[in-house]
Nucleic acid binder design. Structure first.
Lengths: 355, 355
DNA sequence: GCTGGCTGGGAAAGCGCATTCCCACTGCTT
DNA sequence: AAGCAGTGGGAATGCGCTTTCCCAGCCAGC
C-alpha cells in the first residue's frame, strides 16, 4: 500500500512538508494563495491521498466509529446500521463493523479491537444479556468499556446499559421504551380479544426480550387480565417457528385454547416464524390465532396477513446513538437527545375475526 | 484516546521497546521465556492495547477491509455483508463500511477514503451502472481503483467489473451468472405458463438488472416464445410496487392480458413490492398473475404465496469476494475461487392455476 | 586457547503526518 | 530612520510502533 506522500508533494511543489500539510489538510494557518495553488497542483498530479493512519497517529484521533451488532443480516440490526452509517457520514467519519452473535465475550473483543484502532466512538446495538453464564464476560466487557471511556472514548448503547458498567464520562444510553410499548400493545390487543394470550419470548436474560415480556404482562394486568404463559425459544425466525409449531399443536388439539389464541412474539422476525409454523400446520391467521410482533421491520411490512406490531424508529435509534457520541461543538445547545418513541401499529394479523 | 504505550510497558518490564514489541505483537524473533513473561505481565497490569494505527503505519498495512454497498439495510446487501464479515473474521481483519446509494461518484469517494485508511482490500458489492450520466463518475472510479491497485491494494467486485477499469494486478471479479440463471428461470416458467410475460426491471444501465432482463428474454426465446415487455422502475420495493400498480390496472381491465400475466421482477424486493400492489388492487397470486423474483432473500422466504425465484448464495458471494482479496499464502493451491452457482427455485407464486 | 558462527537483546532509524518553535521579512508607527 | 508587531515559511520534534543493524556473550570446533 505505498502511495505518494506529503513529503513528495512538498518537494515537487518546492515547499516544505509543513507548508504542504497546511494547505492540503485543514490547518489554522492558511499559506499564501500562489503557494497553496502550487501545492494543490503537485498533489493532484501525484494523486496524493493523505495517509489517515499517519494523520490519526499524529492527531491521536481516527475519524472511526465502531458499530457492534449481533448479526448484520438481521433486518433489525441492518436498519440501525443504516442510521449509524448516515450519522457517521454527517460527521465525516467512517464506520467499522463488528458482529458478535450477541455473546458478551465477543463484544469485549470487539471493543478491544476498536480501542486498538483508536475509534473515536463505539455504538453497541443489540440486547445485553444478564444470563448467569455471561456474568464473567459481561464483567470483562464492562471493564473494557470503562477503560475505553477513561481513555477519552465515547460509547453509546442501544436499549440497556451494559451490565455492571459504571457510567463514566462519555458513556451514553439510548433508552428504548420496550416495556411501556409492550404494555400499550397488550392493552390494545386485550381490548380486541378476550381469549388467552401466549408470549413467544427469547431466552431468559435477554433484556430486550425480558422487558417486552414484562411490559406485555403489565399491560394485561392493566386490562384486568391474568398473565400470559411464556414460551421461550431462540431470538430469531427459527425460534419463532419452533414455538409456533407447539402452539399450532395446541390449537389444533382444541383443548383449553380451542377457541384460538392471542400470540405476542417479542420481535417481528419471531412472529413471522411463528406465523409460518401455524400456516404450515394448516391454521389461518387471524382466524385461528391472532399474532403480533415488535419492531415493525420494513422488509416485513408486505407480509400477509399484515403483522400487528410496535413501530420503532430503528434508523433514528442508530442515528441518535451515533450523534450522542459525537464531539459536542459550539452551536450545540447541549440538550440531551430526544427520547426514542414508538407506537402500537395494529394490522390484519390481530383483527377481530370469528373469535 | 490516550492509553498506555509499548514504551511504558517496556520500561515497566525493564526491557527495550524492541523486545517488548517482539513478545507482544507477533514477530519472527522470540525473546527468552522469562523475559517474555515479564513483558506480558507488565502489559497486562497496564492494560496495554497496541495502537493499530501506529502498527499500520510502521508495517504499512492496516488489517482493514473496505466494503462498499448501496444500502446496508437492503437484505441483499446485508446478506453479502454477513459473508464479508465472516471471511474478514477468519482473516483477523476488520471491515470498514461505506454506503453509496449506488452512485459511482460516491463509490469513488469511498474508494478514496479506504485508500486513505490504507485498507488492505476493498470489496465492492452492488450493481455497476453504465448509464450515460454516470460516465464521468465511472471513469473517475475506475481511475481511483486503478491507482489503489497499483499501490498494492486488492479489489474484488461482485457481479460486473467496474466500467472502464483495467484489470491490474489485484483486481478480482466474482462473477454472478445472472444472465444464465434468468434464462433458466424463463425456461422453467415458460414450461408452466403459456400466457404473456412482463418483466419488471430496474433503470436501464444497471448491469445486474440488464443481465437478468437479457437472460430472461433469451430463455423465452429458447422456449420458443416471443420477448417479454419490459417495465422500468426503481430498483427497490417501491419501484416494484409502482410497476405492480400498472400491471394490476392492465390485468383488471382485461384487455390483451385478460387471462393473467407472468411477471418476472429482477429482484425479490421488487417482486414483493409488485405482489403487494397486485394484492392492494384486489388481485390474487398466482390466480391472476404468476410472479417470480431473483435472489431468494432469506427474510422473504416466509412470504405468502411463497415466491418463486433464483436462489443465490449471497453470503458465499461475500465470503468469496473477501477471500479473493486475501494475501495468498503457502498452503494456498492458487486455484481461482469456485464459481458462484445459483439455482431456480419454484414455489407457490408461479404455480399452475386457473391459467 | 582462540576463532567463527550463533543467539538474544538493545539502539536507532524510519513509517507519514501535525505542530510547535523559530526566523526572515514586510510594512507600520513614532 | 530605527524599532516594532505581524506575517508566512521552514526546521525539527514527536505520535507509537516495527525492523534493521549492531554488539555482547555463548558455544562448538580446530
Amino acid at each position: 500500500m505505498a502511495a505518494s506522500t506529503l513529503t513528495e508533494v512538498a518537494r515537487l511543489a518546492g515547499v516544505s512538508p509543513a507548508t504542504a500539510s497546511r494547505v492540503l489538510n485543514g490547518s489554522a494557518r492558511k499559506p499564501g494563495k500562489d503557494i497553496a495553488e502550487r501545492v494543490r497542483q503537485a498533489a493532484d498530479s501525484l494523486g496524493y491521498i493523505p495517509n489517515a493512519q499517519a494523520q490519526g497517529l499524529a492527531k491521536s484521533s481516527s475519524g472511526l466509529i465502531g458499530l457492534i451488532v449481533h448479526d448484520i443480516a438481521d433486518p433489525y440490526f441492518a436498519a440501525i446500521a443504516r442510521g449509524v452509517q448516515e450519522a457517521a457520514r454527517e460527521q465525516r467519519r467512517m464506520v467499522l463493523l463488528a458482529t458478535t452473535g450477541g455473546a458478551p465475550g465477543e463484544e469485549k473483543e470487539a471493543v478491544a479491537a476498536f480501542a486498538a484502532r483508536r475509534a473515536d466512538s463505539i455504538v453497541i446495538a443489540g440486547s445485553r444479556s444478564s444470563r448467569a453464564e455471561d456474568r464473567e464476560d459481561n464483567a470483562e466487557l464492562a471493564a473494557e468499556l470503562d477503560r475505553y471511556c477513561r481513555n477519552g472514548g465515547q460509547v453509546a448503547v442501544v436499549g440497556h446499559p451494559v451490565v455492571g458498567a459504571a457510567a463514566p464520562e462519555g458513556y451514553h444510553v439510548v433508552a428504548v421504551p420496550n416495556q411501556e410499548l409492550a404494555a400499550d400493545l397488550a392493552v390494545e390487543l386485550a381490548a380486541r380479544w378476550d381469549g388467552d394470550f401466549v408470549i413467544i419470548a427469547g431466552p431468559e436474560g435477554l433484556f430486550t426480550s425480558d422487558d417486552r415480556v414484562r411490559g406485555f404482562q403489565e399491560g394485561l394486568t392493566r386490562a384486568g387480565r391474568g398473565p400470559a404463559e411464556v414460551l421461550r425459544s431462540s431470538f430469531n425466525r427459527d425460534g419463532g417457528y419452533q414455538a409456533g409449531l407447539q402452539l399450532a399443536a395446541r390449537i389444533t388439539a382444541g383443548g383449553p385454547d380451542g377457541g384460538g389464541l392471542g400470540i405476542f412474539a417479542v420481535n417481528d422476525v419471531m412472529a413471522i416464524g411463528a406465523a409460518a409454523a401455524l400456516r404450515a400446520e394448516g391454521l389461518r391467521i387471524p382466524r385461528d390465532a391472532r399474532i403480533a410482533g415488535f419492531d415493525d421491520i420494513e422488509t416485513l411490512r408486505d407480509f400477509r396477513p399484515a403483522l400487528s406490531t410496535v413501530s420503532l424508529p430503528l434508523e433514528d435509534i442508530g442515528r441518535l446513538a451515533t450523534r450522542a457520541t459525537a464531539p459536542r461543538h459550539a452551536d450545540d445547545d447541549g440538550q440531551p437527545a430526544p427520547p426514542v418513541t414508538g407506537r402500537v401499529t395494529l394490522r390484519r394479523s390481530t383483527e377481530a375475526a370469528a373469535g
